[in-house]
Design a protein around this nucleic acid. Structure first.
Lengths: 344, 344
DNA sequence: CTGAAAGCGCTAACAA
DNA sequence: TTGTTAGCGCTTTCAG
């Protein structure tokens, strides 16, 4: 049964009594006499031979069909869905996927870029840690490696991008809240170095203006990252105000969850004490009580579309210089903003 | 600035006026005169040179420091947490992680095994699709590739394994339900080709016996997979019974979610119509109403521990023939099983 | 249809 | 401290 350990094309050639070239041809469906091919196939079988993809790609100067997805954190269901979209399209096209979590840490991100470049991946899908990623991208661009940004877009980035319409999504969410007669709306945001933070903030301000509401600095809390802790701090800040906001717009799902958990600790109620809404679905959000008013982004499609665009570049099809795909979020009204407040 | 595209060790050597070996030594912290080293370093910088990891690992017969995680579906938060545990330990040890979703499809799994073998990954972490994975493992074993099973364990599998105590976890969950005076308990299970299904089923039966309750076939629904659809079918089956169960033990989180969603469609209530409990946390489960009674497994630790064990094998430390780590789940009682039923 | 020689980018082993 | 040679596993190119 010859289950030996490391077999190479030579071993197969020897066993089949042919040259390595003939084996190579069998492997790549080249022209080989049926009889010879069968002999080679048997040898492959008997030796448990698996060709070395890298030796192949090295000599043929082709990629090893590996894609890299560098993103904040696979735990967040929003990113998980992006990842699944990427994987599905990658797999369908016979690419393998490497997933890296940078946790919004630019250093970790940079380290990954470097080792992925060393691994000669065929292309990069990136949810960047922030604007500083632009500098790190030079590494990738210097190697002429196809790449695409997802969800977030570093300032002045030029290149392919797939993301959501944070500006208009924020406005819609705000319009919904305002239509319920809230006039004092707190905004819990991520760091301004991330494009989605900036865009949602602009949407927030724009919505206030459109509705003749005055903007107040103390109603905006800027977290150090898109996390639960920031949301808890935001709550503390809001509770310390003379005039608390009656409704909250949280910049993402994590922050909304953090806010709710912080409220619970204080035995406070949604939407009585605070109405709340956010970007991006909670996992099994329909089972959460109260259900959350959300700007739902098509995360899975972010992944599939981005991967398709990336593959077009990798496969060298002539495509425009840069492509930007913006998908609109969908407003899902939930119980977390239910009920009216009557203007006094 | 010489941002040319593909630079190799030769280009660097030429630019620095040294041989490729000197460059190689600089790259690997070998003995090089400081002055020479600096020249090489400059050349590397100027040429934007990134060494080719595969060429290196090919010639030095060492791995490229890549781990493969083959698992059912990254969308399920249980597996997501496993994946995150794996990634963290991999990263800490300078390994890169390839993630593949097999969706409980043995064919997809086999295809992945093959291409990962071709990619010469250093080791495999596997949440197998079922018992049939044992056959496919031969491929991996034939290449003497280190590997470890997580969560599930194919029948008669011999080798490293990290998982939960499904049998005792099921008993604990059942004891909890029975202590609330439920005597008719429905069990929604996954396919028997998966070890966790079998173990939980055994626990279910054992708990009945321990409490003098009779086992009834019609109270057990065996899904084709651990999914929501199966749970909905289970509900239909239970509703058709003359004597419905009053409590449900769902074999995993997906199924519990599916069951709840199916109940909601029918305007039925938890725990009034059915008390329910399951294995594995729901994401943001604390926000779900009613909160779910759960046998919580330390998914993240499954990942970290398995990866540590795998790395020991890869790095060739002498370890025992096989190691099995069983982590006990923790019972978290929730509102989904709240309230007593008085025996009539 | 099949094979021999050369070389992808890199490092082991040796030599100087 | 540095360089030379050979070769990892494979495919390209060219020859038969």
């Amino acid at each position: 049964m010859g289950v030996s350990v490391l077999n190479n094309i030579h071993d197969v050639a020897n066993r089949a009594g042919v040259s390595t070239m003939t084996v190579s041809r069998v492997l790549n469906n080249g022209p080989v006499k049926k009889e010879t091919r069968d002999r080679v196939l048997s040898a492959i079988e008997e030796l448990n031979y698996v060709p070395n993809q890298f030796a192949k790609s090295m000599v043929s100067q082709s990629g090893a069909r590996i894609l890299a997805l560098v993103m904040p954190d696979i735990i967040n269901p929003f990113y998980t869905n992006v990842a699944r979209g990427v994987e599905d399209v990658a797999n369908k096209n016979n690419y393998t996927l490497i997933i890296c979590n940078h946790d919004d840490d630019p250093l970790k991100e940079a380290k990954y870029f470097k080792s992925l470049l060393s691994l000669k991946v065929d292309g990069f899908l990136i949810i960047p840690s922030g604007d500083s990623t632009k500098k790190q991208l030079k590494m990738i661009e210097g190697q002429r490696k196809p790449h695409i940004m997802i969800d977030r877009k570093p300032q002045n980035y030029i290149g392919d991008y797939v993301g959501g319409d944070s500006f208009n999504g924020a406005i819609e969410l705000m319009q919904h809240i305002i239509s319920l007669n809230h006039t004092s709306i707190g905004f819990i945001n991520g760091p301004p170095s991330i494009s989605t933070s900036r865009d949602r903030f602009e949407g927030y301000k724009q919505a206030l203006q459109l509705n003749g509401l005055t903007y107040s600095n103390e109603l905006v809390y800027e977290g150090e990252s898109f996390d639960e802790l920031s949301a808890e701090r935001a709550l503390e800040a809001f509770l310390a105000l003379e005039n608390r906001p009656t409704a909250i717009f949280a910049s993402n799902n994590n922050m909304a969850v953090g806010f709710i958990r912080a409220l619970r600790k204080r035995n406070m109620d949604i939407p009585k004490d605070f109405a709340i809404s956010c970007f991006d679905k909670l996992e099994t959000g329909d089972l959460v009580k109260p259900t959350m008013t959300t700007a739902v982004q098509p995360a899975y499609n972010f992944g599939t579309i981005a991967t398709q665009l990336l593959l077009e570049r990798i496969e060298g099809n002539p495509v425009e210089k840069q492509r930007t795909i913006i998908l609109r979020p969908e407003l899902e009204a939930g119980e977390s903003t239910l009920g009216f407040i009557h203007r006094s």
